[in-house]
């Protein structure tokens, strides 16, 4: 530390000098950081080191250090698996479908809700649509497995409208769409919060002058509300880029079954089955590492874009 020399040479303004404290004043700050640093070291950084098992023929008895090194064996193995293409495709189709459907529904909902003038009605609507976000996938999965079964409530409704009953969670034709729309059901209200916050920040004078200029209600939405929401739309679009490997592990693990592995198995569920059910630790870790590396680049790019186009900084 060069505090002492700085202080002697008087480089630092007076107000700040009082804050530049001797060691006795600094060390409590480090003490405060210790528990967090230790927790993160053990449960985040050691597993990062643990990814070396992806390059080993890992045997639990030999541990991270003693297992035999096999280079890229598992990566080659994975690329040659017959189900590899399906898993990647399912992951992207479901994840991209969710990002788009979630945001489009959220934006539409925010715009429509913004037109509701009775504040009690508006608040009641919000109370209802935010709720599903706070329920666990166990509960929601439990309800939907029941409702979407061939004799469930949703199929009763469809039959009432004259359509054929469908086994939504047991058919490869419907499974991906079912994942996307049950996710929309859970999240859209919550996703609308940021858009609604953006709408409340639009300067009311803009609307006043729009009205004076003779714009009707629909023109106000077109020329004031939507442009006012645009920065938030761009921000979330860029941030969501980092999510296109996240197809929804918990949701799918709870709602899928072997009949729909062809369309429903994603990277995360494959890793789970290979690693924790079949105890193929190295194979599973290799797939997981592949995903982490791609996700890393996606997240970094998405933060960079969010910074460039929306001025977003996380800290």
């Amino acid at each position: 530390m060069n505090n002492v020399s700085d202080r002697i040479s008087g480089k630092i303004p007076n107000r700040k000098r009082a804050l530049l404290a001797p060691w006795a004043r600094v060390y409590p700050l480090y003490v405060m950081l210790i528990p967090g640093i230790v927790a993160i070291f053990i449960f985040q950084y050691i597993p990062m080191y643990g990814v070396i098992i992806a390059f080993q023929d890992f045997r639990p008895v030999h541990g991270f250090v003693g297992s035999r090194f096999v280079g890229l064996h598992w990566f080659r193995f994975v690329l040659n698996m017959p189900e590899f293409g399906n898993i990647i495709r399912n992951t992207f189709v479901i994840a991209v479908g969710k990002v788009i459907a979630d945001q489009v529904v959220a934006i539409t909902f925010a715009l429509l809700l913004n037109e509701v003038r009775h504040s009690f009605y508006k608040r009641s609507l919000q109370t209802a649509v935010y709720l599903p976000n706070f329920l666990s996938w166990v509960i929601i999965g439990g309800i939907f497995i029941d409702i979407l079964s061939t004799r469930g409530l949703f199929n009763d409704f469809i039959a009432l409208l004259g359509f054929e009953r469908q086994f939504f969670l047991g058919s490869n034709r419907w499974f991906q769409a079912t994942m996307i729309w049950t996710d929309v059901w859970k999240q859209f209200g919550f996703n609308a919060i940021l858009y609604l916050a953006a709408l409340t920040n639009i300067n009311p004078e803009l609307y006043e002058s729009g009205i004076i200029d003779g714009a009707n209600r629909f023109k106000l939405v077109r020329y004031i509300t939507i442009p006012g929401m645009m920065p938030t739309i761009i921000l979330l679009a860029t941030l969501n880029l980092g999510q296109i490997m996240e197809a929804g592990f918990e949701q799918i693990l709870i709602m899928y079954n072997p009949a729909v592995y062809r369309t429903g198995d994603i990277i995360d569920t494959f890793v789970y089955r290979a690693g924790l059910i079949d105890a193929q630790f190295s194979l599973a870790a290799a797939v997981g590492l592949g995903k982490s590396v791609v996700a890393f680049f996606l997240i970094v790019i998405s933060y960079k874009l969010a910074y460039k186009y929306a001025g977003y900084r996380i800290f």
Partner: peptide, 17 residues
């Protein structure tokens, strides 16, 4: 701290740990 938001060891190494 921030780096852990970008990269993670993943399910299997965490489980083994």
């Amino acid at each position: 701290f921030f780096f852990t938001m970008l990269f993670a060891g993943g399910l299997i190494p965490t489980f083994l740990l």
